[in-house]
């Protein structure tokens, strides 16, 4: 460790505290959190599947649990063409 590293090193304990606070706030509030996300994913995909063919292996679900808000991101790869089921706009 260089002298510069020594003086610029951020202490890790506050990081640990912040990570724990966010994690536990979520774990305490929602025991069925993972179920909710599963249901959301399922229902959203059903709606989209009415309008186009979806390859289930190419659906990516990401969750980012934050302090003030969380984000749920569902990435669905759309086929280049011919995926339409006809009723879309």
């Amino acid at each position: 460790m260089s002298l510069l590293d020594f003086f610029t090193r951020r202490s890790s304990a506050p990081v640990a505290r912040d990570r724990l606070q966010i994690l536990l706030a979520h774990e305490r509030s929602a025991g069925s959190d993972s179920n909710l996300i599963n249901r959301l994913q399922e229902e959203i995909l059903q709606v989209i599947a009415k309008h186009m063919a979806i390859d289930r292996d190419k659906v990516i679900v990401k969750v980012d649990r934050g302090k003030a808000m969380s984000t749920l991101e569902i990435d669905i790869e759309m086929p280049a063409c011919g995926g339409r089921l006809g009723t879309g706009n």
């Binding site: 202490s11 304990a13 506050p14 505290r17």
Partner: peptide
């Protein structure tokens, strides 16, 4: 004290 370990208060 050096910030390398969670403090008691935390």
């Amino acid at each position: 004290e050096r910030g390398e370990m969670l403090k008691i208060d935390d």
